[in-house]
Design a binder for these strands. Structure first.
Lengths: 228, 228
DNA sequence: CGGTTGTTTGAACTTGCTCAAACAGAGTGG
DNA sequence: CCACTCTGTTTGAGCAAGTTCAAACAACCG
């Protein structure tokens, strides 16, 4: 049904352990990190940042590049649950182990933040945690709607619109990921992704350029129509 | 692609508003409610408990029956993101408005808990909130894997196993929901659900009884195998 | 008993998948 | 600089899984 990339460890049940709030200090709005600096780290294209089951000792904020988080089935089928763009926080979970794996899509730099270092000024942290969880859950719920209800064209259209919105780069989207990433995110095959993009080009709704890694949104209204 | 049930309000962007932790009181383990009683309410089959966009004034805990939470596309296609069984908390979100709708699958009784009443003893509440979010996110991530990667048989097999595990009723599962609910949960049609169940019966892995609303798991190992 | 609702079953069809091959760009080494 | 390889993308043809449409069936209920 999907690209088999690699066979990895099976999914385990993860016990709950939730860090408790202790103090009354209010956190800043939502996405800002309480320690905004963190340790800067770089990852090469396709390099693993963490794997499912790894300790949640660190969480990360994307500085440049794109990160994919995903789960695997035993036979290697992969579901990419999200792409994380600059500014996005990922890997911040209340449990002791990561439930996803994370990899650099291209060259990536992130800031790594030690979770235990946060345990002190706790209320601020637990609010960050809650904000991160909320954001992830919102994405997940929207994406279930895409995966469960939409056809190939609708999936691609929503994907492009979503990406364009997050990158907010006028009407040109430089896709940081390859076709197989898009396919594994949308529950399609690379061929269908390719064909559907070609179809949208034929209809004049989008254009492809730069070795097919850049999309121009010629007609957002039409795309929004198609994304329904 | 899926059963069109009704056309409802489109999805809005929801601003963040996150209740803050204030106190150092530790909450009980995870799922227990700080106010365990709440107000008991009953809902008739298919009755709406809350709709997408409603204020998150109340959240709920299932006492008896089953609740479905779902999102709709403009044309009525529906994605049921979860079924909530006795003991499960649903509708507990940090935002001001619900992002899902909730309906009673059959006769349902719940306890309703006013969110604002919780704001006082806050740390306990925010931990509950976090636990609820964590639980929901875990489900959502697992379900994305199902929706994005698995075929009909694998979907049905995982669904039955998951339900059996949560109900922990020996090897018999009484399905509280109808085929169209299962279909809209798994991204299939009612016909495919029906055919796939029939196929599993033919293979001897499960049995159907009680007007096709009860499933006996004759061979869990085989089912687990098929759930890939 | 007849009507309604939910489920099953069949047959035809369609979407997206599989398999295969061609193509294009980026490196690499002679 | 060209030939060669490697990786990623496109394209085509055939196929299969799942959908659609339609009809029959079963249980329930007034």
């Amino acid at each position: 049904m999907q690209t088999a990339i690699a066979t990895r460890s099976p999914v385990r049940a993860v016990p709950y352990t939730i860090p408790m709030s202790r103090d009354g200090v209010l956190a800043r709005p939502s996405v800002a990190l309480s320690n905004p600096s963190g340790v800067r780290r770089s990852f090469a294209r396709n390099e693993e940042i963490f794997a499912e089951g790894d300790d949640t000792e660190y969480f990360y904020k994307v500085v440049t590049g794109t990160v994919r988080t995903y789960k695997l089935l035993n036979d290697g089928r992969r579901q990419i649950d999200a792409f994380h763009l600059p500014g996005d926080v990922f890997g911040l979970e209340p449990e002791e182990q990561h439930r996803n794996s994370a990899e650099a899509v291209g060259e990536v730099t992130v800031t790594a933040h030690k979770r235990s270092a946060m345990a002190a000024n706790d209320a601020a942290f637990s609010n960050q945690l809650l904000a991160a969880m909320t954001r992830r859950l919102e994405c997940a719920q929207n994406h279930m709607l895409v995966l469960g209800c939409k056809n190939a064209q609708e999936k691609i259209a929503s994907f492009l619109l979503g990406l364009a919105e997050r990158l907010s780069t006028a009407d040109r989207v430089d896709l940081p990921m390859m076709r197989s990433d898009i396919a594994d995110h949308l529950g399609l095959t690379i061929e269908t992704v390719s064909r559907t993009l070609a179809e949208l080009v034929r209809e004049g709704v989008i254009g492809l350029a730069a070795g097919h890694r850049a999309v121009t949104l010629n007609d957002r209204a039409a795309l929004r129509q198609l994304s329904a």
